[in-house]
Amino acid sequence: MDLADIANPRALARAVHRQIGPLSGPIAVKEIALALDIEEVREEEMDGCEGMLLTDRRRTRGKIAVNTRRGRQAARFGIGHELGHFLMERHELGLHGVLRCSLDDMRQARSLRKHRQQEVEANEFAIGLLAPDHALEPMLGADPEIEAAMELARSLDLSLEASTRCLVERHDEPLAAIWAKDGMIRYVIRGPSFPWITWSRGDRIPPLSLTRRHLAICGTGVSRMAEVAPAAWTKPDLPELFEQVRIGRDGHSLTLLWATLPEDSDGEE
């Protein structure tokens, strides 16, 4: 199978896994890149750049560099991200065949902005490569919980951010996740059927939320999933909304929301 003929990033990641066969544990992403015409993968500290791809216009070979400042898991994701750019030949390169990716690029989720679309696709490929379908089955077959994302992160050597994205975007239930620092929202992701969230980047965690109450306690750890007023985060006419929060060190928090939608609702606005 010619991988260059596959435009969908998730399908491309599945095709790579079909070629290399079933794997367990952390995916050897560097070795996979080297087997797919990447001549060199450099891991080093860089300023202002999370990853870089150097290749020729026909993608016959390439070199990847990734930033190690944010740790091993971020660097592993960066290798997958740049490999996605390399394999998806319709992705446009920069000057002299160099493509540089910033931290903001690697945080792109769904986006309507054309110039960001290839970054979204490279992220989707990286997630699909590092978290193959068979590895997600236990998490997606159970009730959604932050602990499940934490276990996936440990077993696949992923960041908790990446494993939580897998949970939110792939689970059948309507889910959303909110990352915050010192009570201020950093960013939000929603699953395909979750309704619009009232709060966004730069807003304070809403006062009616479970997260706000747990932040006031100033402890760390993971709460139980508990029912909260839907108006705390989203539409007040939702039948039910459940919330769970993980309070980490240095003021970081992760909130998981699980909605019950009205009958005959698909979550669309």
Rank of each mutant, 00 (worst) to 15 (best):
A135Q: 09
C166V: 07
I64H: 03
R246N: 03
W233H: 06
L130H: 05
R201N: 15
R72F: 10
D104C: 11
I64D: 04
D47I: 11
L12A: 03
E240P: 00
R42I: 14
L36Y: 02
L254N: 01
E240H: 12
G78M: 07
A177R: 02
R113I: 14
R186F: 09
D2P: 14
E269T: 10
A126E: 01
E137Q: 08
P144I: 00
G202M: 10
A142N: 11
R59I: 04
T260E: 15
Y187C: 05
L256G: 01
D182G: 15
R69D: 15
T164R: 00
G183Q: 01
I189E: 05
D105A: 11
Y187E: 11
I79A: 06
S193A: 11
E169K: 00
F86P: 02
G191A: 05
P195Y: 03
A135R: 04
L112M: 08
L130Y: 02
G191R: 01
L210W: 06
C218S: 14
V188W: 06
A4S: 14
S24P: 02
H17S: 03
E169M: 10
S155P: 02
A177E: 00
P236H: 13
T260A: 13
G202K: 09
V222S: 01
C166L: 04
L3T: 11
V228E: 01
I205E: 03
A177D: 01
D182Y: 14
L158E: 09
L34G: 06
L99K: 10
R42K: 15
G71E: 08
L23I: 09
L241N: 05
A153S: 09
L136F: 09
D133A: 11
D172V: 08
R69E: 14
L257W: 02
D56M: 08
E40S: 10
E145I: 09
V98G: 10
L3A: 11
E151P: 00
D2K: 05
H81D: 09
